[in-house]
Amino acid sequence: MDTLEFIAAMTAALAWPLVVLVAVAMLRPQLRGLRLGRAKRAKVTATGVDLEFFDEQVGVASSALGPLPPANQGEGTSPVAEAVVDDLIKTSPGSAIVGEFARMETEVRELARMWGMKDAASATFSNVNDWLHRQAVLGTNTYEAITSLMQAREEALQDLSGVDRARARRYVKLAREVQSRTKIAAAQAPNTPSR
């Protein structure tokens, strides 16, 4: 193989990767708008590419929860606490998701303990969620909402600065809905200590 044949062979072999690189470079702004890094699932079909994002799951879980049953008077988030979370959403949306998740996780673990889960404090949060679902303490919609929140928390932890405010507000709202349902289920718990 002489030099000219080698150059011809290399050109043929590198032509399509070079075309792909040029196309990606030219379409870079449009590709950023696709949010490929936040995709949960991608499926290539004959007609195109189907992407499923975490945001879509949270929207479905939030709408599936439906209206909350009336909570006891005097319960809920105080205006001061809401203002603190709103300020945190403005400065660090990812931190707001992580913080609200921590509050929700504490309440869900306590609920599992009240309903008789012996290792609620040391089990993984996914196992606690699964146990509550199997015991029919929290409904399927709440189970799916918690699962979506776990994914949102993991995503936020990977890139705290990459979460926008609108997404953080949706996740915080969903976490508060789960907390409200948790409080209602806790009031019905068979192992509720008398006060």
Rank of each mutant, 00 (worst) to 15 (best):
A15M: 09
F53V: 01
G162A: 13
W131L: 14
R153H: 02
E110T: 07
A23S: 06
R165P: 11
L14C: 02
D130A: 15
R181A: 01
R113V: 07
M114K: 09
L34Q: 08
A81G: 04
A96K: 03
A64Q: 05
R169N: 06
V172S: 01
A25W: 11
E105D: 09
E110C: 02
A83G: 09
T140A: 15
V19S: 02
A112L: 06
P67L: 09
A23I: 13
M26K: 14
V58L: 13
G76W: 02
E107N: 12
D119L: 12
S122Q: 15
Q30I: 03
R169Q: 10
W16F: 09
A185V: 01
G116L: 09
A61V: 03
G94N: 07
E154F: 07
R176I: 00
L51F: 07
E75Y: 04
I184P: 00
A61I: 03
V178R: 04
N72W: 05
W115Y: 13
P29W: 00
P79I: 00
T47G: 12
V19R: 10
S180E: 13
T124Q: 14
K40C: 03
Y171D: 15
A120V: 08
R181M: 09
A166N: 11
L36H: 02
E107M: 11
L88S: 01
N191F: 10
A145D: 12
P29S: 06
T147W: 06
G99L: 14
P190E: 05
R113K: 15
S161L: 10
T91S: 14
R28S: 11
D2P: 02
N72I: 08
G59N: 10
R153K: 15
S78P: 00
Y143V: 00
T77M: 13
A186D: 02
P79M: 05
E56Q: 11
I7R: 08
R109C: 09
T91C: 08
D55Q: 11
M117C: 08
A12M: 05
L88G: 02
E52G: 00
L18Y: 04
Q57A: 00
E75V: 04
L4Q: 14
G66Q: 05
R28Y: 07
L18A: 15
L174P: 00
A168Y: 04
M104S: 04
L51T: 05
V84G: 00
D2Y: 00
R195N: 08
E110K: 10
Q158D: 14
V85C: 04
L65I: 08
G37Y: 05
L68Y: 06
V20Y: 09
L132S: 07
T182A: 11
A121D: 15
V128M: 11
S95I: 02
V24I: 13
A13D: 10
M10E: 13
R176N: 12
A136W: 04
V19L: 14
I146V: 14
Q73E: 14
T182P: 01
P93C: 02
D164M: 01
L68T: 04
L31V: 02
V108H: 06
A39I: 03
Q188C: 03
N72G: 09
W131C: 07
A102Y: 08
P79Y: 01
T140S: 14
A156C: 08
A23K: 07
E144S: 06
T77S: 10
Q57W: 02
L157I: 12
N141F: 05
V22Q: 07
K183H: 09
S148D: 11
